[in-house]
Structure formats: structure tokens, C-alpha cells
Design a protein around this nucleic acid. Structure first.
Lengths: 222, 222
DNA sequence: CCATTGACTATACGGTGTAAAGTCGGCAGA
DNA sequence: TCTGCCGACTTTACACCGTATAGTCAATGG
């Protein structure tokens, strides 16, 4: 009996799936900075270079976890009308980006899109086309919606506050280095609106989304 | 006569302004990767650590060049109606982000906004308020417009093609690893629309912008 | 039994931001 | 004129990063 049988499978072997799973977890917990090849190796119980046996470079790892995020997004349902389908998809993207804030700058810039990514694009275009959009109009609608969705996530991403009192502190520290009254409209906005109880910037998302969907609908109905 | 007078001012002394000017140039020419403290020092004819005498850390340098970009954006004109003022501002932001692609992820995430940044926000809010928007509606409009503007810049930023033939090559290499016909709608979209001569994704910007402005106007008119 | 090979490790290189200490010329006061 | 200070910059060092290259070693097939 060798020591090998005494400790069978003391470590799971590396697979692409296992690597991506741990990479996703690292990024989710500590942002992209926390996802270094060395830390990834350590999390897997392996040297950093072992990952390079399964992935050509770090960029391919990023490709992989971005496609995992795409896989979490609900595809537009086939049965529903385009407007509710697009609305639900938009919220699903927003939610996925909220769960994976590190992904916001990466989702749109993949040179090697994965299958979930392509399937997602295919389904959205298919939904719009099935609803009677011609190609140009489908392009307009898709471009407009995605710019808004990703842009909202981007502007919301690093908001350094969650609560109303956080906003107050933040605003004060931002305006503090400048003469009082230098930015009267901004000051008004903060005191009269952003600091009001019940205000949550995240609520703006659906408001703007509906403005866009209504605008597209009016053009399409003409 | 010393050698000192023979070579007076052989190097300009460092100032915050000069550092930021060179930092901006480095970022414009080679992206954020090209802006390291060592390269910045080298461009200034100085050791990297010299910059730290004028800036607490690299983040403060980034704060500085982001505010230079904000300074390039046209403030909404006071005289014009809100819709043309917002339209011109949006295009001005789009142009500034096109000149400084590296800035796209940074503009919205500054914890220490500079004066140009704050002045910009103040002017936009002031323009909307002067046009009769109440605070909530001004917040809706501003949030919607900026999400779209920055989102469009983000989705357009890393598009790896400029010409129609580039699109064809790109699309082929993207779909090549997958079975033919796996993504029929996407394939249709590319062949029937994106590859048509005269198509330019950048044109989508103003289309979507007008949909949004019209939508806001209709709400405001009610 | 031996050669091969798949999966991983070890080492090294050039890069990063930045803390800490050292240098040095010009200037203020005695 | 000498002295001590101090602003502006340099030197050195550390811990990290992605990754090229070479080495190790158990399992496997002939």
C-alpha cells in the first residue's frame, strides 16, 4: 500500500470549469484587483503557472468568467410581446451586473465572445425581428437599450454610498474644498432631492428604461 | 562664471499643471496602460518618485486629468431651450470621450471630483431647473441622459473595427469557432445590416439621443 | 521495463505603485 | 561669510503583477 492510496484525490484536478468557478468567486468578492493569477492559483491549491496549462493567458480567463455572467442573463421569452420581453431582459442584465460589478467594463469589449454572449445577442435580435422590427430599427433599439443599461450600471457602479446619511457625508466632503455657494444648483439638488428620505438612485433605472421603451414603441407604431 | 549660468533652466521645474499635461498626453497616446508613474517621470525628465512630491498618489493624478477632460466639455448654453442645450452638451461629452477613450471608466467614479466636474454638474442641473423641471424630473432626465451617453461610449469604445471590411473579418473570426447556423439572427444582422456599405455604428448615437430627448419632452409637456 | 506525455512546479524577467531614506543647491539668519 | 534648514528631487527597496522558459514526476501505453 503506497501513501497514494492513503490520500486519494487529495486535490481535485484542475479543469477549465473549476478554474473559472474560482476566478468568478475571487472577482465577486474582491473586484478585479483580487483576481490575479497567483491568487487564483492559491485559491485552487496550485501554483499560478498551473492555470496557464488550461488557459493561454489571463485574458482568456476573463473571457470565461464574462461568459458565465452572460449565462446568468434571462433570454427574452419567445411568447411575450417585445416590450415586456425587452423590459425583463434589461432588468435581468441590470441584476447580473449588480451581482458582478467587476464585469461592467468587460462585457462589451470581448474580442472572443463566448457562446452565452452570442446566444444572448442572437436571442435579442431574434425577439425584435419577430416583433416586426426591420434590421435598421432592431439595431437602433438594441443600441439604445444596451447603451442605457450598461451606462446606468457604469454610473451607478462606484457610487460610494448606499444610505441617505452616506450621501450627506459624501456630498459634504466633495463640496467642502470649494467656496460655499460655488455650485448652488448642485447644492440645491443634494439637499432638496438626493438627501430626502426614500430617495434611491437605483430607482431611476426603471424610469429611464420606460421612457426609452415608450419612445421605441411610438416609432414602431407609426 | 559657473557651469550653472552656462546651462540655466536646463529643465523646467515640476508643477501640478505640467505633470497633468504630460499625464494627459501619455494616456491619450497609449491608453491608461501607458500612464505609469515611471513613464510619467521619464516624460517629464525626472524620476518617478518626484511626482509624489506634488501628488499624494497616482489616483490624485487621475483625478487631475479627468478634470481636464471635464473642462473640455461645453457647458449647456444659458440662452437656448433645454432640449437643444442638452443635445449639444451630450454631443460635446461624446466628443470629449472620443478624444480621451481612457477616461470612459473614470469620469463617473471620482471620489474627489474636481472643479470642472462639479461646475459641469451644476450647470446641467441649473439648465434643467431653469427650463421648469422640478427636482425629481431633473434627476430623471440627467440620470437617463448620462447613462445613455456614457453607456454608448462604453459599448463603442472597444469596437475593434472602423471600416466595413473590418466588421466582416471580425464577425467571421467571432462566429468561426461555432457551428454554422448556431446564431442565425446574429448572422443575418451582420450580413444584412452591419456589413452594408455606409453603415457606421457611431451614427446610432444621435438616433438614440433624440429618442430620449423626445421622451423627456413629452413627459415635461404634460 | 522503458519511453512518453500530461499536469504541474520552479525560477526568472521586466513591469507596477509607493514607503523610506538620502542628497543637494539655495536661502535666512547670525 | 558661515551655518543650518528646507524644498525638490533621487536612490533604494519591497511586494506585487503577468508570463516565458525549463524542470519535475507520476501515470500510462507499448
Amino acid at each position: 500500500m503506497t501513501t497514494r492510496t492513503a490520500q486519494p484525490a487529495r486535490r481535485l484536478p484542475l479543469t477549465r470549469e473549476r478554474v473559472l468557478q474560482f476566478a468568478l468567486e475571487l472577482a465577486d468578492q474582491g473586484g478585479l484587483d483580487a483576481l490575479s493569477m497567483r491568487k487564483l492559483g492559491q485559491a485552487l491549491g496550485v501554483e499560478a503557472m498551473a492555470v496557464y496549462y488550461h488557459f493561454a493567458n489571463k485574458e482568456r480567463v476573463l473571457d470565461g468568467i464574462v461568459d458565465l455572467v452572460f449565462g446568468e442573463i434571462d433570454l427574452p421569452a419567445a411568447g411575450a410581446d417585445w416590450e415586456t420581453a425587452m423590459r425583463r431582459r434589461a432588468i435581468s442584465v441590470r441584476d447580473a451586473l449588480a451581482r458582478h460589478r467587476w464585469a461592467i467594463g468587460l462585457m462589451e469589449s470581448r474580442v472572443n465572445p463566448g457562446p452565452a454572449n452570442l446566444r444572448h445577442h442572437d436571442a435579442v435580435i431574434g425577439c425584435l425581428r419577430a416583433a416586426g422590427f426591420d434590421m435598421a430599427m432592431a439595431a437602433h433599439a438594441y443600441s439604445l437599450l444596451d447603451a442605457y443599461i450598461y451606462g446606468f450600471a457604469l454610473t451607478k457602479m462606484n457610487l460610494p454610498f448606499e444610505t441617505t446619511t452616506d450621501i450627506a457625508e459624501m456630498a459634504e466632503s466633495m463640496l467642502e474644498p470649494f467656496p460655499l455657494g460655488e455650485y448652488p444648483n448642485l447644492a440645491d439638488f443634494i439637499t432638496e432631492h438626493a438627501m430626502k428620505p426614500g430617495y434611491d438612485f437605483a430607482d431611476e433605472f426603471e424610469y429611464g428604461l420606460d421612457v426609452i421603451l415608450d419612445g421605441i414603441e411610438r416609432i414602431q407604431d407609426r
